[in-house]
Design a protein around this nucleic acid. Structure first.
Lengths: 351, 351
DNA sequence: TTGTATGCGTTATCAT
DNA sequence: ATGATAACGCATACAA
């Protein structure tokens, strides 16, 4: 049903109906009521094509994402936003990616400044550098530029949406799987591999979740947890890693990040029969899952995160629908037997 | 860049450019080349709003789906197509659901006839009644009405797309999980619960996949597989089921369908410590996963299947993009620790 | 072979 | 307070 038809039904002009639809006043209460009634009766839905045509607005969304090498974790969310950008470009959503160096606070700050300078209609923030992200978000709030947060939470109110993971729960899930694999007893090593000084909240939450699984149960009597922190920047880190893996009686290893493939390589080379659980379905990890060296990978759909982040702006700016705040994506359990379909799913993303 | 602007660049009229864009001929080769060149240079993308407005076409898609009670499996794909219909209605995609009785061949045939009568622009088929589905698909091919297949494969060429699961692989995955849970030894029961005479291909493939996991490995020496077929229509089937569960030394049970909650109830009532793996995240099953009675549910994203099935018609009919043939959705492993996020994911679907 | 004109449904502006 | 009308970009029928 079109405005014109409704106007005829109400014996008024199209303009009047339009004023009622958009609540712009300047309509007598009587006719307003009459039109409102008809609108409800016929369940008027504006034609989005006509609306899109006449408004012909286009919006620029800035995405502040970490730089990455091919095959690294942050490639995945980036692929997701790019895919969304390709689809939504037709609808007037334009994407501008600003990449920063994860290990450089100043790099983030610099790109954040760029963001402010370009006065975008929305901003997607990967809050890898927590404190700086909060500063940016605060400024955006002042400027009334909507923003949303991707990957990990940020302690700030007022974001359009958050799309990410429940890191604590994913650690807990890892613990459950590893514990079943080692049949509930033995030594488990938690190996964190880092290459900078930043405090990584996600990593820590995963470890907390992992431990909590054992503390909450009576399993701990048969399980010993050991923690290893390894710095990729030290020259003999591979040896340190190797030693950590070779600790006697180690039955299982948990790596709270995508760097689990480094551990897998050690296990494979040394042919050690240790159960291994890690995070994120990056290419390197997939290879080791396929071979059975990594027993389980926990995924959090990073491409979908990227996709949804941009799609939320589309929904909010163009669709004018209410976008709901928190979106924790499912924690996918990926193993040799179902890897193939997660792999091909990445290509489709939305679907 | 608009047609008008391009026309100006080429010193021709809008109509001429349009004829080139749509390859409708009646343009001299010379001007054609000139325009083609410009089109490529500026990477002309038609404004979808304007196009949608002027074409103002709407398409009706018929979906032939099984009837269901609340909480049953087929509710989920139905929810998915309905969700898609709500979103795509704005773009001119209308959905007509025709529900048939899964246990009645004539009911399917009758609804299939309805489908043919209404001459839809596309058909979504749930090939639960295999032979009849093939008959329908054949007729649709003759009539050149595009169709796609949802849930399980159909042995016929020419579908727009197939969206479903790899049933064999999902059985295999179930075997891997169950085998880890029972630590590689003991008796495993495979319990099929049916309520009709139809040969259920999906069930059989899952069972085949399940067995293959053991046959392919050396595990079988420590594992004994027992199969139980239970008919829900027999008056004492609950007793039969109960007996099947109570078989001595049973360490694990596999149910190749969504009816795993029946088994869970027995295990809970009798407080039996048997590991349990089944399929499909229907409400009843979720409850038992939460309680830890069902250890793993393997999901196949039925809502997404429904969503994608309709979305494929949108892409093909309106977006005029090529829709790719086979889509096996990921086999999700759902357990107590990650259930919550799969649950909430159902609400979003697309995202 | 080419150009022109009309209309799709909505928004927004300008008269009345 | 209300009505009339132009414009958005495209497809198409018709005129030249």
């Amino acid at each position: 049903m079109t405005l014109k038809e409704i106007a005829k039904l109400a014996n008024v002009s199209q303009g009047t109906v339009d004023r009622v639809v958009h609540e712009r006043g300047r309509v007598s209460p009587k006719t307003r009521e009459k039109i409102l009634k008809i609108l409800k009766e016929v369940n008027y839905q504006p034609n989005i094509y006509a609306r899109g045509l006449v408004l012909n607005k286009s919006y620029t969304i800035a995405a502040l994402l970490p730089e990455f090498e091919e095959g690294e974790y942050w490639e995945l969310p980036t692929v997701g936003v790019l895919k969304a950008a390709r689809e939504l470009g037709h609808f007037g959503i334009n994407l501008e990616i600003l990449a920063f160096d994860q290990n450089s606070v100043s790099s983030f700050a610099e790109q954040a400044n760029q963001v402010l300078k370009m006065k975008p209609d929305g901003v997607i923030i990967a809050p890898v550098i927590n404190f700086e992200a909060i500063k940016l978000a605060t400024k955006l709030k002042e400027l009334k530029i909507p923003f949303n947060i991707i990957d990990s939470r940020l302690d700030i109110e007022g974001a359009l949406s958050f799309v990410g993971q429940d890191a604590f729960q994913s650690g807990k899930l890892a613990a459950k799987l590893l514990s079943a694999e080692i049949q509930g007893s033995g030594i488990i090593s938690i190996i964190s591999i880092k290459n900078n000084e930043n405090h990584n909240k996600t990593l820590q939450k995963r470890i907390d979740g992992f431990k909590s699984y054992f503390y909450d149960s009576e399993l701990l009597s048969n399980i010993t947890l050991k923690e290893h922190d390894i710095d990729e920047r030290s020259k003999d880190w591979i040896t340190t890693l190797s030693n950590a893996c070779s600790r006697p009686n180690t039955r299982g290893i948990f790596v709270p990040s995508s760097k689990v493939h480094y551990v897998a390589r050690v296990l494979e080379e040394k042919q050690m029969d240790i159960k291994l659980v890690g995070h994120d379905l990056i290419t390197n990890n997939m290879e080791y899952v396929k071979k059975g060296v990594i027993d389980y990978i926990i995924g959090q759909r990073p491409e979908h995160q990227g996709y949804i982040a941009l799609d939320d702006f589309y929904k909010s700016l163009i669709g004018k629908t209410q976008v709901t705040g928190f979106k924790y994506l499912p924690l996918d359990i990926v193993t040799k037997e179902n890897l193939m379909y997660y792999h091909s799913d990445l290509l489709g993303i939305k679907s």
